[in-house]
Write a protein that binds this DNA or RNA. Structure first.
Lengths: 298, 298
DNA sequence: AAGTGATATAAATTTTATTTATGTATTTTA
DNA sequence: TAAAATACATAAATAAAATTTATATCACTT
């Protein structure tokens, strides 16, 4: 083990400057402090490292050998320090975020855009995964934080912050115009041709569970992979689409789709950002987290 | 500049052990001392480097980056320390000696043999050069010490120690038996067929100067490159050989050559070891120097 | 829920480094 | 050649720092 690494720093500077006084200036300490540090190192190694010459000191053979190693070593550590400071100053680094298609498109995207504009040197990696998988990635430290939609099984060691609300709605096109502005019973969904997401999505299972709880059992006409597709199908009046409002928003405003109203309120869901309380986030991720939760922080 | 290199050593050990307590044991200091050093480093860098886990601590992303550098750097310096200690312990290294053929053969060789046997890991480099060149090599630090024969121009900054005497003698073989046991005048050399060394050797110039000073002007029959050759020529009675006694010693004892006696004493010369007082010698060279000058040291 | 293992914190002590003042050697300059 | 300047070494006093001891806290385990 090295007894006093600090004295190797002094050694590096003296060798570099070829002068005790010069090293003292570079190190912002007094000349005797440098002399002592060198003497300490020499005593410890049992070898002279410098000898006096006209305008300073020169390395002995032993000193030369030592310096060839210390030079590389010291500069390596100094480089490491620089790299870390770069991370801290957001001049380099990487953030890893887990998000679903939905949370990415309707929540995260604008934040990422702004973030990337402000910190162009930070690499952003978004891992697209469903909620449970995202939570698993969090626990193993493979992502810095996740953006998921409720509901999900809350586990210990997670900090969860809701960042916005989303609504599950049913939309239809011209062919179903008779239902517009009518207040429907949930039961009536059983009689309508439904267009839903695949079963393995949280949006779908959430809706299924809600309907079942209310004694409504539906058998969708279409099961599609993406919400966008559902909207397209609804636009062509192939059925009544079950989607999160954001996907249909443009068409609702345009009037080419309308929202079905029910006499029971469909419970609202949330987008949440989630991070581990066990694993601290890298500086860059922390910055984005603060952006995303601004005004939402507890 | 790195503010406190010592704390990087602690960092290295904590990262290596994955534990503050473990690092404390490895470093033979108390656990709080380690905690503090890490906290100091974290404060200085403005970043967390570790976070707590079940049985110790783990590196944060920033810590990982830093460690990738510090690991190499620290180990590099530690390796340098090891190498220097090896030099000190004579487990490696190199000595560079300047010597003439004569000083090497009739003085240095047995020392080198013993030295190499005792320290087989030390590389020995002998530079064969005439005295003035050897002195120049000394001053530029290209050799650690030299072994030369007097006379030579003494310069400042040199430590010179005579280590043995040598004698210049004249030897002859059977054909010149008439001169055996006679006391000759130096002048008689002018009438004898002389076998000498080349003019560019100190042995030759020294003898020439001595003879001239005594009003003797010789014109050698043979000028040869090596003393050994002179002896061979003398053995065949091609003339009277002018050599340093050692070259002829065996044949003198054997009786196949004899030494001419003169009524003037030819001044003795010396082998001297010479080193710079300005440039300290490496450890290994110092050891050999001590061997060579043992009992001769001032 | 209590106990264990590990890290954090705080205050006192000890050690260490640093500075100031001075000495010494060598080199430069007048 | 002498004097001045430059640079490193040394010593003692001071200042700073790291280390230790004692204790608190936290998390995981049983």
């Amino acid at each position: 083990m090295i007894t006093n690494l600090e004295s190797y720093k002094v050694f590096y500077y003296v060798a570099k400057a070829g002068s005790v006084t010069g090293a003292a200036k570079a190190l912002s300490i007094s000349q005797p402090a440098v002399s002592q540090a060198i003497r300490q190192l020499e005593n410890h190694l049992g070898t002279e490292l410098f000898y006096r010459v006209s305008r300073g000191v020169k390395l002995t053979r032993e000193g030369q050998l030592l310096f060839s190693y210390v030079e590389k070593g010291y500069e390596q550590i100094a480089l490491g320090q620089e790299k870390v400071l770069q991370l801290k100053n957001m001049e380099s680094g990487e953030i890893r975020i887990g998000a679903s298609d939905m949370t990415l498109q309707y929540f995260l995207l604008p934040y990422l855009e702004k973030f990337h504009e402000k910190y162009p040197d930070i690499k952003v990696v978004v891992t697209n995964a469903p909620t449970p998988e995202t939570l698993a990635l969090l626990e193993t430290g493979r992502i810095d934080f996740g953006v998921v939609s409720t509901p999900f099984g809350e586990e210990a060691g997670l900090e969860i912050l809701p960042v916005r609300e989303i609504e599950d709605i049913f939309v239809a096109g011209r062919r179903f115009i008779a239902y517009k502005n009518k207040t429907l019973d949930l039961q009536e969904l059983e009689t309508l041709p439904l267009i839903c997401l695949d079963k393995n999505t949280s949006t779908r299972t959430c809706m299924d569970e809600y309907l079942e709880k209310n004694g409504v059992f539906v058998q969708p006409e279409f099961e599609l992979a993406t919400s966008d597709m559902i909207v397209q199908f609804a636009l062509r009046s192939l059925g009544v689409g079950s989607v999160v409002r954001d996907f249909a928003q443009d068409y609702l405003e345009e009037g080419v789709l309308f929202e079905l109203r029910f006499n029971r309120i469909i419970p609202k869901r949330q987008f949440c950002v989630v991070r581990s309380t066990k694993i601290p986030m890298p500086v860059a991720a922390d910055r984005l987290w603060k952006d995303v939760t601004k005004g939402t922080e507890v």
